[in-house]
Design a protein around this nucleic acid. Sequence first.
DNA 1: TTAACCGATTGCTTTCTGCAACTGGTTAGC
DNA 2: GCTAACCAGTTGCAGAAAGCAATCGGTTAA
Lengths: 169, 169
Amino acid sequence: MAVEHRSGCPINLSLEVLGDKWSLLIIRDMMFGNRRHFRALLTESEEGIASNILADRLSRLTGLGMITSAPDPSHKQRILLSLTEPAIQLVPVLAHLGAWGRRHLPVSRELSIRAELLERGGQPLWDDFMDELRELHLGIARPPGTPSVLGQLTDAYFAELAKSGPHAA
Amino acid sequence: MAVEHRSGCPINLSLEVLGDKWSLLIIRDMMFGNRRHFRALLTESEEGIASNILADRLSRLTGLGMITSAPDPSHKQRILLSLTEPAIQLVPVLAHLGAWGRRHLPVSRELSIRAELLERGGQPLWDDFMDELRELHLGIARPPGTPSVLGQLTDAYFAELAKSGPHAA
DNA sequence: TTAACCGATTGCTTTCTGCAACTGGTTAGC
DNA sequence: GCTAACCAGTTGCAGAAAGCAATCGGTTAA
């Protein structure tokens, strides 16, 4: 039961949870792409994750308390995946990581527009987004009429897509 | 020469650089532990990195432009490692990652005091710290008399160490 | 009835990790 | 100048993990 840790350093412990090439991408897709079940994560993955790796990471992240899964009432076969509160609190980490990547690495314009908006919005926008994620994933209602951060980000992404590449119309 | 990228997403590209269990720990030790050469990183590593992994990551991070190396004038054999500007700009990412770990994972008190101070200080403290790192690693002087953030963090760490475990006096 | 879709699993090869021993050269103390 | 400690790595090997393609049994929609 007692898991082995390399050290009690917060950064090390965070890396023991998130320090691989796929876990954070899965969380990113659940957050920003609103992908909530296995097939969606598998086939809509920008980076092309393999099914066994996805299955492994989902069960790993579930065991670590980052994700929960529940049967989807509309499809008996479908399993609805949700982010937990700790995972939702990764929003600022992902925002900073995206901002850093945007500044120093060869990002594509379409895929970095969301990072740019998130960076410009800062902590207030992150707080709104986390509240929206709490509504979507934890069922914690927000005041009615609250604008959707996810909607804004998604709209901006599709607008960028339409600008450059309506190839695959 | 053209490196293969899985996608142009900022988060993905950041993970291609930093998404493993050791790279960020090496950068952390260079930043917060002021470890500037191979042996220091190897033997003072809290987590016990192996020498071949360390050698591999150092050359990898050097190739990626995160670290530079130069002969140490005082010891002919010694190589001085320095963080580059992109690596220094990881301070907010590490601060948030530490804050997240401190909140959700079983950290030890001694090793999390620095994360706590960094979180309390917020962006202004991070800016001061990055300026200090620019002085230490890039030779960009700061106004004389500026207090040392690294010193504050290190002092707080040793104070915590002394509180609980003066075992290995 | 049938074809598409659901969350996985299997078998396989390739790559990465972790450990320990070791290398050739440098420095500090005597 | 000798010796012991120290410097940045390298090598060899075993085991773990990644990546790929094909496949599984059950479910749903046409």
